[in-house]
Simulated scan of single mutants.
Amino acid sequence: MKLLYEGKGKQVFLTDDPDLVVFRFKDEATAFDGVKKESFGGKGEMCAQITEILMSLLEKNGVQTHFVRRLSPNEVLVKRCSMLPIEVVVRNYSAGSIAKNLGLKKGIKFPFPIKDIFYKSDELHDPMLNDDRAVALGFVTFEELKVLYTSALKVNDVLTNFLLEKGIILADFKLEFGKFKDSILLADEITPDSMRLWDKDTLEPFDKDRFRFDLGDLLAGYRLFLEKIST
């Protein structure tokens, strides 16, 4: 397969079908725009399996995604989308940048999900946007933003309820979207790399914050999360 693109967490390969590409998840973990990085054997396989489980769950609940099927332990087949240059973050609890920037205590539950959008740029450190800026700069239209927000909130409803049944709080998460033919699809991945996941009783993290802030073994957290959502 010919390599099309390589990012921090995965490689993207062309296939014989121009409408399909292969995601190969890597074992590397990065934080702080790549300043901190380390390889964890088996991480890629767990991320591929988690993406398969959660994308399949979302499809069954009416969310259109680019996911087709898992091909191997660390590879998934997906529809080849033209990616939108923004990412949508949904926040149910205070954590990360919103807590830091606004001086909030970590773990405050918001009265409703907060939606933020950011321009995808490692060089600029993913600056925050608002609707007017995103549209004025030509990244999306107002109609497309409505689709993104509707899909993001649907994802939040489905995953929040599913994970709570497993004893997990979905504190926040990041989504990326792409255009495929005449549709806007949920794309990229859904893994602990892009979510904050806390144990309902202890608030212990299962996500990449374990690596970011040295809160525990990364693989142990991902493995426990995978076990919980697999049963």
Score class of each variant (00 low, 15 high):
Arg212Ala: 11
Ser121His: 05
Lys154Phe: 04
Pro192Glu: 01
Lys10Cys: 01
Lys181Met: 09
Lys10His: 01
Glu143Cys: 01
Gly62Val: 06
Leu104Arg: 13
Ala152Glu: 02
Gly178Glu: 00
Phe139Trp: 04
Thr51Trp: 10
Ser194Met: 07
Lys8Met: 09
Pro85Ser: 04
Phe32Cys: 06
Leu57Thr: 06
Asn161Ser: 13
Tyr119Gln: 00
Val12Ala: 06
Ile98Phe: 02
Ser194Leu: 07
Ala48Val: 09
Leu185Arg: 11
Thr51Ser: 15
Asp188Trp: 12
Arg69Pro: 00
Leu153Ala: 02
Leu185Cys: 08
Arg24Lys: 13
Gly178Gln: 05
Phe40Ser: 06
Gly107Pro: 09
Glu227Ser: 12
Phe13Arg: 02
Asn130Ser: 02
Leu20Asp: 04
Leu4Met: 12
Lys154Gly: 11
Ile184Gln: 02
Phe110Asp: 09
Glu87Lys: 03
Met1Ile: 10
Gly167Ile: 14
Ala31Trp: 06
Val89Gln: 01
Phe67Cys: 04
Asp132Asn: 10
Asp17Val: 10
Ile117Gln: 00
His66Lys: 12
Ser56Ile: 04
Ala99Leu: 08
Arg91Ile: 06
Thr15Gln: 03
Leu3Lys: 15
Phe180Gly: 01
Gln11Cys: 09
Leu219Gly: 03
Lys208Pro: 08
Gly107Ala: 06
Leu163Tyr: 04
Asp193Trp: 14
Gly9Asn: 10
Gly42Gln: 12
Gly44His: 07
Arg24Asp: 03
Pro192Asn: 02
Leu219Phe: 13
Ala99Ser: 13
Thr231Arg: 11
Glu123Ile: 11
Leu148Ala: 05
Ile53Ala: 10
Glu176Trp: 03
Val90Pro: 08
Ser39Met: 08
Leu84Trp: 05
Arg212Tyr: 14
Lys109Asp: 03
Ser194Tyr: 09
Ile168Thr: 08
Gln49Arg: 15
Lys79Met: 07
Leu137Met: 15
Glu227Phe: 01
Gly9Ser: 14
Lys109Pro: 12
Glu176Met: 02
Ala134Ile: 00
Lys208Asp: 13
Ala95Leu: 09
Thr202Leu: 08
Phe162Asp: 12
Lys120His: 05
Lys106Ser: 08
Asp122Trp: 02
Leu185Asn: 07
Val76Tyr: 02
Glu176Ser: 03
Phe13Gly: 07
Ala48Gly: 11
Lys179His: 09
His66Ile: 07
Phe112Gly: 05
Ser94Asn: 06
Met55His: 14
Gly62Glu: 02
Gln49Tyr: 11
Phe173Lys: 01
Gly62Arg: 01
Met195Pro: 00
Lys109Met: 07
Gln11Ile: 04
Ile184Asn: 04
Ser151Glu: 04
Ala134Gln: 00
Phe32Lys: 06
Asp193Ile: 11
Lys179Asp: 05
Ala29His: 09
Phe112Tyr: 15
Phe13Cys: 05
Gly96Arg: 05
Asp131Leu: 05
Glu204Trp: 12
Ser183Asp: 15
Ser230Val: 10
Asn61Val: 08
Met128Gln: 13
Thr141Ser: 15
Phe23Glu: 01
Gly103His: 00
Phe40Gly: 03
Arg80Thr: 09
Asp132Ile: 10
Glu6Tyr: 00
Ile117Trp: 05
Gly138Arg: 11
Asp172Pro: 11
Arg69Thr: 04
Lys105Ile: 10
Asn130Tyr: 03
Gln64Cys: 08
Thr30Val: 11
Lys8Tyr: 03
Asp188Phe: 12
Lys79Leu: 13
Met83Gly: 04
Leu197His: 11
